[in-house]
Structures are given as structure tokens and as C-alpha cells.
Nucleic acid binder design. Structure first.
Length: 275
DNA sequence: TCCATTTGACCCGG
DNA sequence: CCGGGTCAAATGGA
């Protein structure tokens, strides 16, 4: 056992993200222009949440750091498609409280440009007896329960471990049953877009990414399913149990027992919910 | 063997 | 110089 490998990266100081650098990838900067000031106007926004890891995107952790007066280390993530699709989105996660479900502060930088399919929350796929501890599953007018989630991306590594220690994510899977509808399918090519404001006074934090995924059907079911990225609505921040929210003609209410009610209007009733 | 995570070193701005 | 962000070799799980 000679001397353990101590020093790291002593050879190439990786000069300044220079061109011809990593994978011939350009530096994470739109346009350095002339100033040598590094990243000046990065677009960042902060979100407080109980579920900092599941926001519908695939993240790759690239660092962790103990911050001076913070009780918890800060975790650094960047989009898993950074190289593949030149997506510069990144985020850092900072645990704020020591509560049972701890509160986290998540600082996002840059919007995603990868256009990757939304990553379902853990548990949505699993047809376990245990209620999916991830996301909400609402079934409209159907008794065929939930879980018709389909995975398109296999690179969901981080989900495995996280699903056991963290609570779920702001993801909503809707299953809309058209089977006993008098109308023909006529699946809308696009799900009705969310409105830009909550009913009474729930502000929307980000609306740019607030679009549902493309609906799909499984087998020959008449179940239309799609995912909403609820993180765009900042549920954690503004929605409490018992509150009512409304968008695009639909309203949801969180019941104290953890379930939820949804009302699509047009007489469509809501079914069960797992939380 | 592959690849995401871990973890200490390196880098850089204030 | 210090604190925070990033790099990248080592690690470890699949």
C-alpha cells in the first residue's frame, strides 16, 4: 500500500473551458462577447419544495459542497442531456429545514433546451399495492385505476435510490377514459393548455415549461393519459391541503386526508388519488 | 465493463 | 484569502 492517490487533476488545468475542450463542446455560455467576466447574467430562479429531485427532468449530480453557515451540504446537478443535446439547465439543491419532510431550496439555472420526455415520478410506474408514493394519479371517469405510465427513457438511474428516501414529485398523471363517452375519440393533438393564473390567488412561477406531455394510449384502451408537469405551478409553495386550484376549466382540491378531488367540468368526475 | 456518483482538488470572483 | 462552483479520478453498483 504505497501512498494512496492523493492529488487529483494535476496535469491539465483545463484552461478556461477553452475551445477544443471537452467533446469539442463550447463553454456553457451563450456568448462571451468581449468581456472576460464569467457568467454575468445567468437566468436563475428559486423554488422551495419538499421534492427537489423529481421535477420531471433527468439530472446528473456533479458535485456536493459544504456551505459555510449552512447546516446541510449543497448538491449540484446538471441536465443529463448536457452533452447530447447541449442543454445547459442546471440546479442546486439546498436543504433548509430539519423537518420530517425537509424543505429544500432549489435554484435553477437556464431553462431546459433538451426537450426530453418528462420523467415520471417514482411509483407511477410501479403497480404496487402500496399507493404510488410519487405524483398524483387521477382517474377520470374510469375505474381502471392508474399507472398507465410509459417510460421512454431508460436513463433513470437516480430514481432508484431516491425513491426510497424522498417523497414524490410534483407530477400528475391523468387517465381520461373515453370508452363510455358518446363522442368519438378525437383525441386532441394537444391537451388544453393551462391557464396563466390560479383561481383565487395562486401565482404561477414559471409558465414556459408548463405544458403537458403528449398524450398517449396503452394498448387498445380508451384511456387517454398524459402527464402534467406540476412543478411549473409551484404547488408546494402555494397549495395547502384543502386548498382549491383551478386551471383550464379543471379544479383540484386537496383533502386533509391526503386525497384529492378533481373536477374537469363538463360533468367529468374525479376518482381516486394517491398521495 | 460501463457509467453515474462520490469526493477532494482546482478555479475564480469578490 | 475565503467561499462557492466545477472538474475529474476513484469508487461502486448494475
Amino acid at each position: 500500500m504505497a501512498s494512496p492517490p492523493r492529488l487529483k487533476r494535476k496535469q491539465q488545468p483545463n484552461q478556461h473551458y477553452g475551445q477544443g475542450g471537452v467533446f469539442g463542446l463550447s463553454p456553457p455560455e451563450p456568448a462571451p462577447r468581449d468581456s472576460r467576466k464569467r457568467r454575468k447574467d445567468k437566468h436563475t430562479w428559486i423554488k422551495h419544495t419538499l421534492t427537489p429531485y423529481f421535477d420531471g427532468h433527468l439530472w446528473r449530480k456533479y458535485g456536493q459542497k459544504v456551505i459555510k453557515d449552512a447546516p446541510y451540504p449543497r448538491l449540484y446537478f446538471r441536465c443529463s442531456y448536457r452533452e447530447d443535446r447541449r442543454c445547459l439547465a442546471s440546479k442546486l439543491v439546498q436543504q433548509m429545514t430539519h423537518d420530517d419532510p425537509p424543505l429544500y431550496e432549489v435554484t435553477y439555472t437556464y431553462e431546459h433546451t433538451c426537450n426530453a420526455a418528462p420523467v415520471p415520478a417514482p411509483g407511477v410506474d410501479a403497480e404496487d399495492e402500496r399507493p404510488a408514493s410519487g405524483g398524483l394519479v387521477l382517474s377520470f371517469g374510469s375505474s381502471s385505476g392508474a399507472g398507465h405510465s410509459r417510460r421512454r427513457d431508460e436513463r433513470t438511474m437516480q430514481l432508484q435510490e431516491e425513491r426510497q428516501q424522498f417523497v414524490p414529485s410534483p407530477f400528475l398523471t391523468m387517465n381520461l377514459d373515453y370508452s363510455n363517452s358518446s363522442q368519438q375519440h378525437a383525441f386532441p393533438s394537444s391537451v388544453p393548455p393551462p391557464t396563466t393564473s390560479w383561481s383565487p390567488s395562486f401565482p404561477i412561477v414559471e409558465s414556459s415549461s408548463a405544458s403537458p406531455s403528449t398524450p398517449w394510449t396503452d394498448d387498445d384502451d380508451d384511456i387517454l393519459t398524459w402527464d402534467w408537469d406540476l412543478s411549473a405551478y409551484d404547488f408546494d409553495e402555494h397549495l395547502q391541503l384543502g386548498d382549491h386550484a383551478q386551471f383550464s376549466g379543471s379544479s383540484f382540491s386537496w383533502k386533509p386526508d391526503g386525497s384529492a378531488l378533481a373536477n374537469l367540468g363538463m360533468g367529468i368526475e374525479v376518482k381516486g388519488v394517491t398521495f
